[in-house]
Design a protein around this nucleic acid. Structure first.
Lengths: 338, 338
DNA sequence: TTGTAGGCGTTATCAT
DNA sequence: ATGATAACGCCTACAA
């Protein structure tokens, strides 16, 4: 069984407090005692009970991370950045998924709160999701930083990508390649996609292209089989007069799926239709064809978000002015848009 | 600030213990008192402090999950299964990544142990990684279940895939398609790949094909840029007499990367070389070309692993005979191997 | 330099 | 039906 402070104290004929102090290298304790205690502790593989420590000190040295969906490449990379930063700062992180369900998001926040964390990193589902829970957390003195979804209404630091500009650049690129009829596919109700749509429109405008309503497709993510949905919606458009010569996909998931659909339909990309989209897939060049993509600086976003959070944790009760940071995306041109 | 049991007690002129009992619906408490207490608690948004609860009861209702690398499709799906099962069982899970570093694996286990968990789910890095830490956990009465990497030496329940058979089937498939010179690419030191290699050899043998040593490539995962490594090693082989007419890739990562490399080299798949491999990518049909794959039942594996774990948690001190379960893989034929 | 006592928030036991 | 008390493992004044 696990050994406790008391056990050590008893074994060495010391008091628990002496042992505690010895282990934390208190100046009050003699070198000799420290040595004895530490040796004994090491030998018996003593580990302080964090639960008890937490209860006493109120500090957990742990940051909670609630992500919408770890399977997503972008999110996985974001997490990677968070983890890198947390290791450097010597914090533990507890990861939870909301799986794009607001109930689970709320629940995850609650669990973390009850369990004890020093701060929370969150990619909120919607612009006002879990607001109450988040405010309560803040009222308890636990800072929150929002990542990716910077459109959320909570007042705090937010770190995301420059979605407008990413979409703008991709659109300009297509226009420069001579595309005239550019389709836009996005997910319904995703906050980030709003900015991307604006960027798309601005790109069209600056390229003297008109926005074609028939070529604007909004997929409802909630209805499970995305690929089916895309296919159902896309086929009639491709057969119609409105047939596009390029597609801009606003999200990671949609980009890959659209490519899959086009491959299924044996539509040649980019010959028949050029494709570009937001995507952080690490396999862009194994896709059919190699994918031109707007890449988000996911790792950096994670690191920066974490950094902002620890800043807040370590500067309690100071007044801070909150920032919203939009990191630049990168346009990586491969074959699919040429 | 957060409200505590005591606060409620004070406010209602009750004792803390009465409040505690009322909230847990103890039969000792009158309906009326229960009602008052619960209403007050709800109104003031009381949440029991789990840390204190844990300290007292020793139970955490939490399971630790240590995964090697969440970015991997297979692992992400595994996690999905674990999470589904944990939600059903009303357990919280704490996810940590070992990122394929044994030190981080040990550390993650330690953190979880100190923090308090009722059980651990682990995809161990190597066949004897973190053995001491795991045994200690078991000695503390905290059960451990190993997932995916069933070759680990710890005595406990293990849930993985039938790697031998998956590889065997893929190899047989290639042979049936008339392939004679089948290459094998795998990762160095990955435990699961050993079984897969055996299956590959058995498949060759049963197809009356000989194993060609020049067509056996072992990639060292640790050295970062996998794609570069594959390319470096593959190019000379493709130019040589030994040129294969098919490739069997033993891991998810290698499969995607190999496809990317072949695309870069403008080698036509499957015309020039057929490809099949272990892969759980959700974008198999967006790849170039649509990928034939050995798919692992990742979600099921996660669910089953979690289930085994809760079984152990709830049947403490009973003697159990440990099983090692090998779930069947699925061979999904698409274009790349035809 | 070391020890004692009290408390973090909860629950369990034993009174009342 | 309710309350007082102790305890979980640790930390920290304060006392010795």
């Amino acid at each position: 069984m696990r050994i406790t402070l008391k056990d050590i104290a008893k074994a060495l004929n010391l008091s628990a407090s002496t042992v505690s102090k010895a282990l934390s290298d208190s100046y009050e304790i003699s070198a000799e005692t420290k040595k004895t205690v530490k040796e004994y502790a090491a030998k018996h593989n003593f580990r302080p009970n964090k639960v008890a420590q937490n209860l006493k000190t109120g500090k957990t040295n742990t940051v909670g991370v609630v992500l919408c969906n770890i399977s997503n490449n972008f999110v996985a990379q974001l997490l990677d950045g968070i983890q890198t930063a947390s290791e450097a700062a010597n914090y533990d992180i507890i990861i939870m998924q909301s799986r794009n369900q607001e109930m689970l998001e709320k629940q995850a926040i609650e669990v973390l709160r009850m369990r004890g964390i020093d701060g929370l990193l969150l990619t909120p589902m919607a612009s006002d999701s879990s607001e109450r829970e988040l405010r309560e957390l803040q009222d308890d003195g636990i800072p929150v930083v929002l990542v990716d979804r910077t459109f959320h209404s909570l007042e705090t630091h937010k770190v995301g990508a420059n979605n407008f500009d990413g979409a703008y650049q991709a659109t300009i690129h297509l226009a420069e390649r001579g595309k005239k009829r550019i389709m836009h596919i996005t997910g319904r109700g995703l906050g980030v996609s709003k900015e991307r749509f604006k960027g798309f429109l601005a790109g069209l405008e600056d390229s003297k292209l008109k926005f074609i309503p028939e070529l604007n497709l909004e997929i409802d993510y909630a209805g499970q089989p995305i690929e089916e949905l895309i296919k159902e919606n896309l086929v009639p458009i491709l057969k119609s007069e409105a047939r596009p010569d390029a597609i801009f996909c606003a999200t990671d998931e949609i980009t890959s799926r659209t490519l899959g659909v086009l491959a299924d339909l044996e539509i040649a990309v980019p010959t028949d239709i050029a494709v570009i989209g937001f995507s952080n897939t690490p396999n862009a060049n194994a896709l059919n064809p190699a994918l031109s993509a707007v890449v988000q600086p996911a790792r950096k976003m994670g690191e920066l978000g974490f950094q902002k959070l620890t800043e807040m944790i370590n500067s309690k009760n100071k007044e801070v002015t909150f920032e919203t940071i939009a990191l630049d995306t990168e346009l990586v041109i491969r074959k699919s848009s040429l």
